[in-house]
Each structure stands twice: as structure tokens, then as C-alpha cells.
Design a protein around this nucleic acid. Sequence first.
DNA 1: CTTAATGTTCCCCA
DNA 2: TTGGGGAACATTAA
Length: 256
Amino acid sequence: MPELPEAETICRTLGPHVEGRRITAAKFFTARVRLGSLPELNGRTVRRIHRYGKQVVADLDRGHLVIQLRMTGLLLWNRSPGAHTRAVLEFPHGHVCFDDIRQFGSIRWLEAPPDHLGPDPLEIPPDAFHRHLRRHRSQLKRLLLDQNCLRGLGNIYVDEILHRARLHPRTRTDRLGPARTRRLHEAMRAILTSAIKAGGSSISDYVDANGRKGTFQLQHQVYGKAGVPCPRCATPIRRILASQRGTHYCPRCQRM
DNA sequence: CTTAATGTTCCCCA
DNA sequence: TTGGGGAACATTAA
């Protein structure tokens, strides 16, 4: 579920509950949720909650807990554990449940903070973004989804960003000129900041750490809207497969 | 019963 | 070496 705006929203809603607090117990209910070996967490203090791309990172007094939410992961403050609860972190004043229906998510421990992925879409300047994309010659959608190229974008937001930028998902990145890259950069910033402001997109079951849904799905222009008239030109939105993902775009506004 | 789902990794081929 | 296709992971809902 979480892409950059959802991960950001989870951090903003979870941070105030646990930052500066001491972990009193860590419980894991499935083997696959732990990626690698974790040190003793009991007694460790959570210094800060922040995101790295789509991942939620808890800085501890030593080391970092990195939580990959993948498709269905959720971090929930003070909710009773259920059938899909894979791990629980306990504090003196409450607990965090890591719920994950599909079990693709994971929790791992790193001595040093993660730094292996591409730049953050909200931090990269327009000119660097242009040079960055020009270095590859793949389909635009594929490249934007590649976390090694850019960290944080996922299927929903790439479709929304490409529609706003009026770019076809199969555009070759090596044929993007400065004007179109600039448009893409502007669209990326605009969509992501609006989505964060709206608390993310709740399509199926995403909620923030307090259990609240986001509202950005109400502003979606193309994602999940195959056959619906394009808000800009009324041409029916088309759904194709690009980079193995369902891809929604306007065949008239977004030409190659 | 089949298909698709907000993600990532790995294997294979050109 | 680079890019792209497909499978795999596990679960639910339409």
C-alpha cells in the first residue's frame, strides 16, 4: 500500500507516539517478517521516525530499524493485534502493531542508516533530475518505478504524475528534452505534496498510524479509472500493462 | 474459477 | 552491460 505519501503520513502520525520512548518488548509472530538477525530491542530508545523512500525507519540509540511495508503493510498505534499482525513493539504507554496481510513486508536492523537507493523525488533539483533520467534509455514508467533510480514512487503516483505531466508511460527516457523533464519534475512535486497534504491514498485498506484513511484517492485523475472520461479532455482513460503493472493514462493527453 | 492488487527480487533472454 | 519479460512470494476480493 504505501508509496512515498503514505510512508510520510505514517511517519508523521507514528512519530509523536514513540519518539523519545523506550521499547519494553518486541514480539514477532512469523519467521518471514524478520529479515536477517535483529539485536535485543528491549530497553532501546526510539530517537526519531522518518522515511527513506517508501520505507519507515526508526532511528534507535544505536542502529536503525527499517520497516518495508510493501503491498499491505501497516503500522498501527495501540490497536489490538489481529490475524494479520506480524510483529508488535511495546512501550510503557502503548504498542505498535505491524500488520501485513500478504506478508511481503519485513523488518530489518541496520547499523548505519540506509543509503543505497536513488535520490528522493522531493529533494532532487530539476536540472539534476534531467541529467539523471537521460543516463538511462528505458520506458519512462519503468524507470520512475525503479527505486534504485528514484526512491519513493509507486504505481498509483507514477500514473497520476505522468497524466499531470502529459507524458506517455512508454516514452523513452533518453528522448526526453529539458522541457518535458521540467514538466515531469513539476508534476512530481505537485502530486506528491498534494497527496501528503491529503494523508495519502486509501484504495483498499491503507490507514495511518492512528487508523485514519487518506483522501487523495478522491483527487485521482487516472489511477483505477479505465473507461472514465479524462478530466482534461473527456477521452476515455485507457488501461494497459507497462512494466508488468496496470497502467492508466489518457491516450489523447499523453502521447509519445 | 480467474484475475488483479499501493512491491521487490531473481532468473532468463536479446 | 543494459533493458525487458516473467515468475515468485501470500492473501483477499471482485
